[in-house]
Nucleic acid binder design. Sequence first.
DNA 1: GCGACAG
DNA 2: ATCTTGTCGC
Length: 225
Amino acid sequence: MLRHSWNLTIRQAMALQRRLAPRVLQAPLDGPVRRIAGADCAFVGGGKAVVASAVLCDARTLEVSATAWAVEPCRFPYVPGLLSFREAPAVIAALRKLDQPIHLLMCDGQGRSHPRRLGLASHVGLYLGLPTIGVAKSRLCGEHGTPGRRRGSRRALLDGQEVIGCVLRTRTGVKPLYISVGHRVNLEDAVNWTLRCTRGFRLCEPSRQAHLLVTALAKRLGQGL
DNA sequence: GCGACAG
DNA sequence: ATCTTGTCGC
């Protein structure tokens, strides 16, 4: 758990990331995982506000068991590497509105696979004290080879000698996902849970459902703003 | 200085 | 992320 201001300059934000990164926990998932949350963002009002969705999926059936959302003013520009200062406040607000406890969270973006090892998934995980996995659709940093064409094929995402994530094919013949440790999980569990939560689409179900919800919300809210 | 660059 | 229609393919 953590509590700090989100109203920072770019320089302060980068300093905060360096200060928080050492507090990220990389360990096997503890406790039973019954409910998995997914969160995603969209922008409305010409980029003036951020809408975030939070969905809870049953870990066994992957059915959606609860949803919530929140709108926050957009207080930070998009700067590669500082995404959490733009999206996390809304994501955190939405997650706090879920009525059931979250056992694992899948965030749309990087976790440890970040220049300062504190991507959105790690920042949100640390802030809420939740086990979190970073599920990104493209690369922010690091190098990797091309994974095999089949679902389940993977390649390490490397920053020099350090393994910072995994490039994972979640669907045969489709562009891979960039999986990384957010908080309180290890890369192995992160990859296994991502595969376990994927059903015929590139995105894992919690992330996919969160994206569908936030897209619908943005479309509906886009008018009244 | 040049290119890269989550959403 | 967002601005945007149809279209090729399973």
